[in-house]
Design a protein around this nucleic acid. Structure first.
Lengths: 205, 205, 205, 205
DNA sequence: CATGAATGAGAATTCATTCAT
DNA sequence: TATGAATGAATTCTCATTCAT
């Protein structure tokens, strides 16, 4: 993240300022939508003058990018810690659990988080940024790869892409459309069927 | 599209004008990028005055939306006609073919088309437009449902959603990221594995 | 009014068209406000094409002016006929009646008429047109002048101006502010006091 | 006025800027007429960039409103100070003086002031702004109420309204029409006759 | 006469960014 | 460092009016 900022925050105060600015940015995205995200508005909301904002960020683009990165790091951390709780389970059990966690994460009704995630995904998409290989789904691939025996053929690049994207994109779409299916046991089963169907099926000739 | 336009074109000339405006919009998107898509620029490029543009579209947003719709209608038409050619094949064969057609549709390599598709996908993503239920993928569900015997359990609503979205969203993401995997045999195989893995696997207990 | 129009309406149909256009103009003013009074909108509302409108009026300004004139003529007619009913009453009685009629006219709750009158007054004011010496109030001056005996000194120009304007402007302001006083007996009494106080008092030394 | 502005000016410089903008607005109104009052023109004339204008005013409308208010405040101040000079005169004398002052205030002959007053009155009329209860005329009511003895019946609400509005509205109309009567002794006498006629006459039975 | 497609000057307003204090 | 006043290019959109069909 350091390469994004104008100056490495040597002092704690500076780091605080940056956090405050990113917080304000996130809040605007959540509460008012992307159209209202202007630098001046953002500065006022953060309680700083616009000049101060430009002391830390060279331009608006960078602010949003920094926010995206911060968000990604945090969700990564959260999911990794959840996974840790199931460290010792059997592979299948683990994967099942990951899907549950993911489903829960998207189905959750804490509006702010969902809105922010969505807003950032939109921005990322508009910029052409790859929505990053989601840690959770990536973990599935890892678990599958490690699970020796049974003649597990490791996934090739295309397969990884297809599997990982399909799961989160389905969830993203369901969220985007506020589908009533989201959160139901049926939906979760369907997701599991998608994942295990893929994993267990042999590569088609 | 009529519900998008400001007035229903009464004369043939008017209909032509609308097409010309959309063409110009597409050309700018392809040749100069979304940032340069301003209403004035667009009008000039179309060879009309800005007033004419606003005679037919209430605002800029709508122009892009109309273009997206036109594009979607056209791909829809193309895919439907392709499907028609395989009307009489065996179910599995048909599904296999549908996946091929879809893959081909997204893996355009001719530059202008590719760029336009990309630009429109980005815009749609930024706007949060749901990708419309794709005819082709929907057809898979239909074929599967009709193929009786073999103890085919029909798909429930969640399963339909998950299966159909996963396929096109994976393709959409690949396009959006300009993934080099798109268009390779490996990628198509992975898609087939996703579809057949899902269809053949029983509902998880 | 003929000098305002582009061509003297020789045919009945033409006269009808003009009326329709003016009606549409009035309706827009009443229902949607002066900001929405555009030539195109007006034409559509009248059921004619914009070209036809310009066949009869050289420009927008003229349309509004014609409407103002039509309105003035009509209110004039209406009030004159009312006055006729009291042709034979005593002067004081007559004047009292005029004030009543005026008060009633403004206090009336037929919204459309009031809105139109107001809208036209606003336009007239903005153009600097004199709101015309209202027929009714003007009648007061006439009656007073004719009432011989009692040593009635005829009003000079300033006095006419002050008397006539004061009455209708007070009413206009009350309307404009939607004053709750408007329409009450107290208010009418106060108006009478204004008129008779003025008429009966001698010119101050 | 603070409620009109976009932000409360924190620095003295800002306050100056606002004044300059209003001055430029007034100058355009006087020298070039209301049609030429565009925000860009206004900004250039004030010597600021258009952005600065919008830093302080949310839209064009507000600028004019602020100017009107500034003008009203100033005339209010002027009139109040004049009234102060006659604090100790007899009631009738006082009222007579108030009418004189008012008349004088409206009958400005120095061109710039006159033109500005005219332009602002037109705008106010077009906007339907109520002319604010004028201090001076209000004072008449006060003086009359205090002058006890002589069986002065205090004015009721309707009477206050009619008396106060009639005087200033007559003056407003005369100004708006650039009536040549304005400023003549005759006109002032007529105004006095209006006021004293009203006050001295008993309520009509 | 009627139509309505086309015009285009010009208006209001935004917002990322700079820089003197 | 922090402030916030100032910038101004750029953008969207309006609407009276014309004129070919």
């Amino acid at each position: 993240m350091a390469d994004i900022l104008r100056k490495t925050p040597l002092q704690e105060r500076a780091r605080q300022t940056i956090e405050t600015i990113l917080d304000a940015t996130a809040r605007i995205l959540v509460e008012e939508g992307g159209d209202r995200l202007t630098t001046n508005h953002l500065a006022r909301k953060a309680g700083f003058s616009i000049g101060t904002v430009y002391q830390y960020f060279p331009n608006k683009e960078t602010i949003v990018l920094a926010l995206i990165e911060r968000q990604r790091e945090e969700t990564g951390r959260r999911i990794r810690s959840m996974l840790d709780d199931w460290r010792d389970a059997a592979p299948e059990k683990k994967i099942r659990e990951i899907v549950r966690i993911l489903h829960e994460a998207f189905a959750v009704h804490r509006m702010p988080e969902r809105r922010l995630a969505l807003a950032l995904l939109k921005i990322a998409a508009a910029r052409g940024l790859p929505s990053p290989p989601n840690v959770a789904v990536q973990a599935i691939v890892g678990i599958w790869g490690e699970a020796n025996g049974k003649g597990n053929v490791p996934l090739n690049e295309s397969e990884e892409f297809v599997l990982t994207r399909s799961v989160i994109e389905v969830l993203r779409q369901a969220t985007l459309q506020s589908s009533p299916l989201l959160g139901t046991p049926d939906f979760e089963e369907a997701l599991l069927r998608l994942v295990f169907g893929f994993l267990h099926s042999a590569r088609p000739s």
